[in-house]
Nucleic acid binder design. Structure first.
Lengths: 198, 198
DNA sequence: TTCAATACTGAACACTCTGTTCTATTTCAA
DNA sequence: TTGAAATAGAACAGAGTGTTCAGTATTGAA
C-alpha cells in the first residue's frame, strides 16, 4: 500500500504545524501562543489547521505522542542490542539521553514555559511506564509507603531533575545528571518499594 | 487608627471573591473559571472585581499570599512555644498540618485542578524557604549534587506528596504522610546536601 | 491532456471572554 | 443631611476561538 502524494502533502502540512509550536512555546510560553501565531509561523491557512487538529491542545498532545513513539522506537533498538539476561535497563538514563538529543522539543514540552496539560500527560505516561517496570518488583511486606505514592513521587522527582537540567541548557552529560538523579532518589525508592537494589 | 466601616466593607467584598474562587477551581479547574463565574458566585458586579484585582491571576496570587501569611503566623506561634535549643523544626510536618486544616484551599491551590501559575508560585516560595532554612547547612565538600538542584527536587517531592495526599482526601494523618515523605526523601537529602541528620 | 477528487486558502461570521468606561445607586462618616 | 467612597451593571472595544464556505491549487487516474 504505497503512500500517495496527497498523503505526503498532509504529512508535510502536519509537520509544519508541529515544528512551529515548540519554538513559539519557548518564546512566549504555551498559554500565550495563539492559533494565529502557529499559522503565521507555519505559513498555513486557518481552516487548514482546524481540518487537522481540534485545537491547540490537540496539536500539542499529538506532538507528545510523536515524541513518545520516537522514544519507544529508540528504546526497542537499544534494548535489542543489549539483550543479555543481566543487561538490566536504565529507564531514566535513556530518557535523559533522548531528551538531550531532542532538547528543544523536550524543553518546550516539560520546561518552565510549557503548559500544565502536557506536564500532566507526561506524568501520566511515565507513571504508566514505572508501574509496568518497577511496581511489580515492590515488596509490599517490607515497604511502608503505598506504591502509587512512590510512583507519583518518583515521576515528579524525575521531571524536576529533567526540567532543572533542560532549563539550564544541560550543564552536564546525560550520564552525570542521571547519576545525580539516582543519588537523590535511589535510597528513597528502596524505602518506598521495600527492596534492595543490585 | 481605627478601621472605618468602608474598610470593613472592602474587606468583606474581597473575602467574597476569595472564597468564591477555590470552589470553582475544584469544580471545573482553574483555567476554565471565568471572571463572570466568580462574580455570579460572589454576587458582585463586574466593575467591582476590576477595582480590586487586575485579573483572575491577581486574585489567585493574592489568595496565595493570604495563605502564606496565615501559615507563617501559625509557624511563629508554634515556634514560639517550642523555643528550646534542640527543639529543631519540622517544616514539612507544619505544612502538612496547615494543609489539613485548610484542605479545601490547599486542594484548590496545589491540587490536580489548579493552575500552573500557582504551582510555580508555591514552588518558588518553598524554594526560598528551603534555601533559607536548609541550604546553609549543606556541606558542599561532601555533597556531589548542586544545592539548587537538591532544593528544586525536594520542593517537587514535597508538592507531589502533598498533592497525592490532598487529592485522595487525606487518607492518613499529617504525621503519617510526613513520615512517608521523609522516608522517601531523607536519604536523598543527605546525599544532596552532604550531611548526616540527627 | 483532461477531469474529478482532495487539500489548502482566507475572508466572513457568530461566539465567548476580557478589561474599561460611564452613569446610577447604595452605604458610610461627619 | 450631605459629600465621599464603594458597588451595580450596562455598554463597549478588542482579542481569540472555531466554523463555514466559495474559490484556488495539487494530485491521481482516465
Amino acid at each position: 500500500m504505497k503512500q500517495t502524494k496527497d498523503d505526503r502533502r498532509v504529512e508535510r502540512t502536519r509537520k509544519l504545524l508541529h515544528e512551529a509550536l515548540p519554538a513559539l512555546i519557548l518564546e512566549k510560553g504555551y498559554e500565550a501562543v495563539t492559533v494565529q501565531d502557529i499559522l503565521d509561523r507555519a505559513n498555513l491557512g486557518r481552516s487548514t489547521f482546524y481540518s487537522h487538529y481540534r485545537d491547540k491542545d490537540d496539536l500539542l498532545l499529538k506532538g507528545f505522542d510523536y515524541l513518545r513513539a520516537m522514544m519507544e522506537k529508540q528504546h526497542r533498538s537499544v534494548a535489542g542490542k543489549a539483550r543479555g539476561k543481566g543487561a538490566g535497563f536504565n529507564l531514566s538514563l535513556e530518557l535523559f539521553r533522548h531528551a538531550q538529543e531532542n532538547h528543544r522539543l523536550y524543553k518546550a514540552m516539560v520546561g518552565k514555559r510549557s503548559g500544565q496539560m502536557i506536564i500532566r500527560q507526561a506524568h501520566k505516561y511515565l507513571s504508566g511506564l514505572l508501574k509496568e517496570h518497577i511496581a511489580p518488583l515492590a515488596n509490599t511486606k517490607k515497604s511502608a509507603v503505598p506504591v502509587d505514592l512512590t510512583v507519583d513521587w518518583l515521576v515528579s522527582s524525575f521531571l524536576s531533575v529533567l526540567t532543572w537540567w533542560l532549563d539550564r541548557n544541560m550543564p552536564c552529560t546525560a550520564e552525570k545528571i542521571d547519576e545525580l538523579f539516582r543519588q537523590l532518589t535511589m535510597p528513597g525508592i528502596q524505602a518506598g518499594l521495600g527492596f534492595e537494589l543490585q
